[in-house]
């Protein structure tokens, strides 16, 4: 089990970091996923471990996004009611970008590795999951479907859209 977790923990961390944009939250997600995996699936055969482990990671990531959405809704509501009389501009626009990217930082992104990471962070979550599980973790379509909890056809669609979108976004950075 130790050996298995050692082989997947860094890639799981990368996936969580892309999804959250926050190293601390990503670490929490990976630790939580390892705890849950060891508790529930320690006796599973080796060939079933990767899709199961990444399913837990993806569930934790989706859960993180749900919480963020609720938090953002409440923050937007609070800002809106607090400043109602002073400012009628869109409160959402005033929220801090959770990934912490300032325009200066965006402009400073130059090299292809960083550009790739930035482009992956900006993919819609399902496309990001499909791309990372298929192209980075190299799970099969069936394993990815199991990890994402969706149909194989959806995996193929999300994955091909992700690749097309990334190629389009990176055309100025990549040879």
């Amino acid at each position: 089990m130790d050996e298995f977790l050692q082989t997947v923990e860094r890639r799981a961390y990368q996936m969580a970091r892309f999804a959250t944009g926050n190293p601390e939250d990503a670490l929490d997600i990976v630790q939580d996923a390892m705890m849950a995996f060891v508790k529930r699936y320690a006796d599973k055969p080796a060939e079933e471990r990767r899709p199961l482990f990444f399913r837990i990671v993806q569930n934790r990531i989706r859960d993180w996004h749900r919480k963020q959405n609720v938090r953002n809704r409440w923050t937007a509501w609070w800002i809106g009611s607090y400043q109602d009389d002073e400012d009628d501009s869109d409160p959402i626009a005033r929220l801090v970008d959770p990934k912490g990217r300032s325009p200066e930082k965006e402009l400073s992104i130059r090299d292809s590795g960083t550009a790739l990471q930035s482009a992956i962070e900006r993919l819609p979550l399902r496309q990001q999951q499909a791309f990372l599980l298929r192209s980075f973790e190299e799970l099969s379509v069936a394993e990815t479907a199991r990890a994402m909890g969706c149909a194989e056809g959806s995996v193929k669609t999300h994955h091909s859209r992700a690749v097309r979108s990334l190629r389009e976004k990176l055309k100025d950075h990549w040879p």
Partner: peptide, 14 residues
Amino acid sequence: SRLTQARHRALEQK
């Protein structure tokens, strides 16, 4: 190192 610690905590809990 923090990932390693997290792994050890998970295995210890088991």
